[in-house]
Design a protein around this nucleic acid. Structure first.
Lengths: 151, 151
DNA sequence: AGTGAAATGGACAAATA
DNA sequence: TATTTGTCCATTTCACT
């Protein structure tokens, strides 16, 4: 992991559809070296995959919510049951066990409030062992996710 | 946007490095139809780009934090100043204006607590007009982001 | 189905450390 | 010395028309 690898990762996070020649050019290396670097970053599982980025609004998903969830019990089995349920629901885009007041933070994308209500009823409220939930809605996105910093 | 487009978007979010022939196969369409569909999804800006996915742990980023930030004032200028500052800092990966108690929710990735402290001092504490901040650390990721649901 | 561009993989000498 | 790089090379795959 030298500076060229880092700038390569930055370039690939920004746009992975560019040709190796272009990438090589922008990071200041030869095509073959660039190709080799990408292959070894993949082999090292630093690059875990490639993905298309979608516009949520054009997909009809205008409502983003972060939901903080507290469990009634922090016992191992309660957490395992909760987490197994989370894995089932496709509407839960992301879930982290966190420090702080809430036990879990969950991310939801919905079409609108009505759809969020539906997700709330048919998914969030079915999660087992929940003591309390607090939802925050994203009114506006100030900064969108564009990959990890590479230093 | 028919069911084939939807399953194509799902496939492209999961793995955009597959060839068009493979994708066509998995969604049950011909290669040429699949190719045309991808081009029009790009032209419609439903697909906004392609990106490499990185493993944060192997990048040395073991600490994820969600920081809830409240401003002293919700005046237009206070918010604009805050948001302009957020845009400057590369360590802020994501930022949303939210409903609920906190005004903003911000996402941070750091190497460790020491690095987070550094980010806290050199970035978060420099944000203008902040009244209070509450940090939650991700202890464990239950479900990782894998793209938007496509229905 | 055909064309052209690009990814892939290999060999080897130069450079680097 | 050992590893990495750059410049060829040939082959194959694939995007695009």
């Amino acid at each position: 992991m030298d500076p060229i690898d880092r700038s390569l990762l930055r370039a690939l996070q920004t746009d992975s559809s560019r040709s190796i020649a272009e990438l090589a050019d922008s990071v200041g290396a030869s095509s073959s070296s660039c190709h080799r670097r990408i292959k070894s970053l993949e082999a090292a599982h630093i690059i875990t995959g490639y993905s298309a980025l979608l516009d949520p609004v054009r997909l009809g998903l205008k409502l983003h919510a972060f939901v903080e969830i507290t469990l009634e019990s922090q016992s191992r089995t309660a957490m395992e049951r909760f987490e197994a349920a989370v894995a089932q629901f496709d509407d839960i885009l992301e879930c982290h066990l966190t420090s702080g007041n809430a036990d879990y933070i969950v991310r939801i994308a919905a079409r609108d409030l009505e759809h969020f209500d539906k997700i709330h009823r048919e998914c969030l409220s079915l999660l087992p062992g929940v003591s309390s939930m607090r939802s925050s809605f994203a009114i506006r996105t100030i900064k969108r996710w564009k990959g990890y910093p590479t230093g």
